[in-house]
Design a binder for these strands. Structure first.
Lengths: 153, 153
DNA sequence: CTTGATAGTTAAGAAGGCTAATATATGTCC
DNA sequence: GGACATATATTAGCCTTCTTAACTATCAAG
């Protein structure tokens, strides 16, 4: 019965990585943002408002490193720090509109090939793929629930 | 008719990136290899034997940068340089067995969640997903052919 | 108010990775 | 052979990012 699913999944992953990374690297070169900076912006985007140490912890660096990285983003007008009114030791990190725009652009360049890919499919194929991917997404959520049941307190 | 395919594709991409990158970063931290080094190893792995400038061009850096990056990999025993007999200006870059092992491990780390994901599917679902992904892979190949018809001479 | 923990910043120094310029060896064309 | 192009290596200098170690501000408990 055709190549096993595992093999197909891995192959698909390889394809995705190759396409997305190529565009991502081109984007960073073009815009002079380092991978670390763009990565930080993406984290802030995903987390919504968060603290500096949260950021560092998630990226696997010390809070000092996170602070410095953030400082430069603030200087470039891409991120903002404000005080947490409930605990004034914390800073609340957010994106500025310029920062949000950078994030959006980087996501678009990374994913634009998917749009062109979708256009190559017939409506029937689109529906078939849609159902399969939604199944995968749903199961992945379940996978996360099983493995990290107690991450939020 | 359910969310549009484009939306589902992008969501699936987001899921993949989050899972794979997290494991990838953990792996680099653990093994003290920088992202650039691991990236270089992966390129060599994908390209098979290639020259230094090929490497640099593909990674979007000067050949000087590629040479230095490679030098460190050689010192660590992960890559090897040998002379190209047909054109002795070129170096033929290959992985050592240690280098191949690192590459394999990093791929496994990045993709192991896919194996667990596959196990959550019934045989029928597996077949359904398998067919859909193979369709996507095949269409992506076609996409590449359309867009880069003359990349190899 | 004092003590001790926590969050963030700052400074100093090390390391990685980049470019540009230069050097060296090799290939190609006449 | 001689002139020029090509592939790689080397060097110097710069920028980014990391860590460690202070230091400041805030909170929480007594």
């Amino acid at each position: 019965m055709s190549p096993p699913l595992i093999h197909t999944l891995h192959e698909w992953m390889r394809v995705i990585m190759r396409h997305s990374m190529r565009n991502f690297i081109l984007y960073t070169k073009e815009h002079k943002y380092s991978a670390a900076q763009l990565n930080t912006l993406l984290r802030i985007h995903r987390n919504g408002a968060c603290s500096v140490s949260d950021l560092g912890e998630e990226m696997g660096v010390t809070s000092a490193a996170a602070s410095q990285l953030l400082e430069r983003l603030v200087q470039q007008g891409l991120a903002a720090r404000s005080e947490d009114l409930r605990d004034r030791r914390n800073k609340v990190v957010t994106l500025t509109s310029a920062g949000r725009q950078i994030v959006q652009e980087s996501i678009v360049v990374r994913q634009s090939w998917l749009d062109r890919l979708a256009e190559l499919l017939t409506p029937e194929e689109q529906e078939q793929v849609n159902v399969a991917l939604q199944l995968l997404i749903e199961k992945t959520v379940r996978l996360d629930e099983e493995e990290g049941p107690g991450r939020k307190s």
